[in-house]
Simulated assay, not measured.
Amino acid sequence: MFYKIGETGTDSVFTRSFSVLLLPLILTANRTSSFLTTTEIKTIQEKLVQFLNDEKDYRGYVAGKGWAHAVAHAADAIEEISQQVLSTDDMIALLVSIRNVVCTKATVFTNMEEERLTSAVVTLVEHQELEGAVFEEWLTGFLQWDRTKELQEEYKIIFNVKNFFAALYFRLEGCSSPIFAEAVRRVRQELMKPYV
């Protein structure tokens, strides 16, 4: 998972990305057989947070080589671990790591990463007892980044956040807690105020 992590544009991302892809399989099996201890689940959660915080290669499809998709594969793992027993602190750490990835100036996500990240968040909301206030505080964090006057850099973050919020809103609107969708709508309006 952490093989040469931090590298960008090299083939090492495939080793990392496809190692992460094993985690959803293990966690799915655990929901049936309960062979992982609470400590082991906690360790997986911590390693996922570390992975998302340290991974810098955000490429989706790599011509001639296939899918790198480290962010999407990590999102799949988060979606699955969200169906295990997690503490509030563990949930917040996962959410913050997702926010950090979405709020990048390194790339504009164009390979449906926002949909995979949205699936992780919606699953977390639906399977954990996440308080609305905690969720809204997490959303508000999307409005806070080191702003510059370089609009072409700022627009990368705005584009990523706007797409992620749109996906999140429409998915949450259809779930059992529409207050979460309403929170997304309010924060998205704040995001766009300076630009419309």
Rank of each mutant, 00 (worst) to 15 (best):
Gly9Val: 10
Gln144Ser: 14
Ile92Phe: 12
Ala167Glu: 13
Phe51Gly: 02
Glu55His: 02
Trp67Ile: 04
Ala106Leu: 10
Ala93Met: 06
Gln50Ala: 13
Leu151Ile: 09
Val71Met: 06
Glu55Trp: 02
Glu79His: 09
Asp146Gly: 13
Gly66Cys: 08
Tyr169Val: 00
Ser12Gln: 13
Thr43Tyr: 15
Thr107Leu: 02
Asp76Trp: 06
Phe135Glu: 04
Glu150Thr: 02
Leu117Ile: 07
Ala77Phe: 04
Gln50Trp: 05
Val62Met: 13
Leu130Gln: 05
Ser34Cys: 10
Glu182Gln: 10
Leu172Met: 06
Phe109Arg: 02
Tyr3Phe: 11
Asp89Thr: 12
Asp89Tyr: 13
Gly64Pro: 07
Met192Cys: 12
Val122Ala: 08
Thr39Val: 09
Asp76Cys: 04
Tyr155Glu: 12
Cys175His: 06
Leu21Pro: 07
Pro24Ile: 01
Thr15Ser: 10
Pro194Thr: 00
Ser177Pro: 05
Glu190Ile: 07
Lys162Phe: 11
Ala63Asn: 13
Asn163Leu: 01
Ala120Lys: 10
Ile44His: 11
Leu25Ser: 10
Gln144Tyr: 08
Phe2Leu: 01
Ala93Glu: 12
Leu151Gln: 07
Asn30Phe: 06
Glu79Asp: 07
Leu25Trp: 13
Asn100Lys: 13
Cys103Phe: 02
Ile158Trp: 01
Glu46Pro: 06
Val187Cys: 04
Arg186Trp: 04
Phe165Gly: 01
Gly6Pro: 14
Tyr61Phe: 14
Gln83Val: 09
Val71Cys: 05
Ala93Gly: 05
Glu40Leu: 05
Leu151Lys: 08
Ile92Leu: 15
Leu23Gln: 14
Lys42Arg: 15
Gln144His: 14
Ala93Leu: 10
Gln189Glu: 13
Leu25Met: 09
Phe35Ala: 01
Tyr195Ile: 07
Leu191Arg: 07
Leu52His: 06
Glu153Tyr: 14
Ala183Tyr: 00
Thr148Phe: 09
Gly6His: 11
Ile92Cys: 08
Thr10Arg: 14
Pro24Leu: 03
Ser176His: 15
Asp57Cys: 03
Asp90Trp: 07
Leu172Glu: 04
Glu150Ile: 02
Met1His: 09
Cys103Tyr: 04
Trp138Asn: 01
Gln189Lys: 15
Glu113Cys: 03
Ala74Gln: 12
Trp145Asn: 02
Val134Lys: 13
Phe170Gly: 06
Gln144Asn: 09
Tyr155Ile: 08
